[in-house]
Computed example of a mutant assay.
Amino acid sequence: MTDLHAPLSSAVATASPASAGRWRYVRWAAWPLYFFLLARWTDRNGLPYTEDLVFLWLIGALLAAAVHGGEGWRRTLLVLRDWLPVMAVVWTYGLLRGYGAHTPWAPHLRPQLAVDTALGFGRTWTVRLQDALYTPGTAHWYDYAAVTVYMSHFFVMFVLLAVLWRRHRTGFRRLLACYLAVTYAGFLTYVLYPAVPPWMAAERGAIAPVTRIVGDVLAQAELPRAASVFEDGSRFANDVAAMPSLHAAYPMLIALFFWPMAGRRLRVLLAAYPIAMAFTLVYGAEHFVIDILIGWVYAFVIVRVVQHLLDHRARRRAGAATP
């Protein structure tokens, strides 16, 4: 009997020629089938851009890679063992985030508005940037660039986790721990301090009228977007989850995490990503500047604390293993 945990290539080698041929076809078909299904799904439902949908397709890509590489059933099952719990945690956050919008206390606006007005010398930077750069009904190249940066929030972290999962399992666990810690610290803050974003402040008349540029540009481009089960205009949406900005926190987390091991060119990209995201969020009326600064502080503190705790744990294990 063939060992279940043996590489698929070994199993094929001991199988009959007909069976080996069928397995070869399965391996060759793994990626074409994956991309066919993804293209078909996107054509019918729109771009998958929310965490739950990105996770599903990412797990599918890892499974396709395992099958195509002939890595065996054990490696294929490891994809499900390691990623389904992560997906469940992210889904749980999506549920909790929505419930966080229904706190008994009203969302806050005055503190962040006062800080941003001071930083903007009398006007918020969202109003200043849109007055200078945005043309209603006409999307410029930098508007499309801002949309691209904004949408990267929904997949960059997961792609990096997937790469680390395949190449550096310790790095995967460390980045995942930092990501989950920042995410749930953000959720706790949303519950304790629901905060009004600039676009909602404009709707309330607290600042001059502004436009949610990302949604406006996507509408102009007529790009359909697949809605998450948690954010489909339902009770799971949370419009006052603005402080801290996780859109800003994740790029800073990525920069801090990879900085020690990065070369000069990569460090340029690592530094540029949080800055580009910060500009996008303020310009697009999604966050005040103070939301972004607090998000950066969360990322810095949590990366330092998590790395310290994991390093301490590794030293203790190494000491226990030493005779």
Score class of each variant (00 low, 15 high):
Asn45His: 14
His102Pro: 00
Trp125Gln: 06
Asp131Ser: 08
Arg169Asn: 08
Gly70Cys: 07
Leu293Thr: 13
Ala66Asn: 12
Arg264Leu: 14
Gly171Leu: 09
Val289Phe: 12
Ser10Asp: 14
Gln130Glu: 11
Ser9Val: 13
Val240Asn: 09
Arg173Asp: 09
Leu310Met: 14
Pro136Tyr: 11
Glu231Asp: 15
Gly21Tyr: 05
Ala139Gln: 11
Arg173Ser: 10
Val89Arg: 02
Leu62Val: 11
Tyr134Ile: 02
His287Trp: 12
Arg169Pro: 04
Leu38Ser: 00
Phe154Trp: 13
Gly233Met: 14
Arg225Leu: 13
Val115Ser: 11
Val282Leu: 02
Trp125Asn: 04
Arg123Gln: 05
Ala208Pro: 11
Val268Lys: 01
Leu218Arg: 11
Pro251Trp: 07
Pro323His: 02
Arg315Ala: 01
Gly263Glu: 01
Thr92Asp: 12
Arg123Ala: 04
Arg265Ala: 13
Ala118Asp: 04
Pro107Thr: 13
Pro136Gln: 01
Gly94Thr: 00
Asp239Ile: 09
Gly21Asn: 12
Trp23Lys: 05
Thr92Gln: 03
Thr189Leu: 11
Val305Asn: 15
Arg44Pro: 02
Leu33Thr: 15
Leu38His: 02
Ala64Glu: 05
Gly263Trp: 03
Gln307Tyr: 15
Val26Lys: 03
Gly186Glu: 08
Gly70His: 12
Leu80Val: 00
Ala276Met: 15
Tyr25Leu: 10
His153Thr: 11
His168Asp: 08
Leu164Ala: 03
Pro224Gly: 09
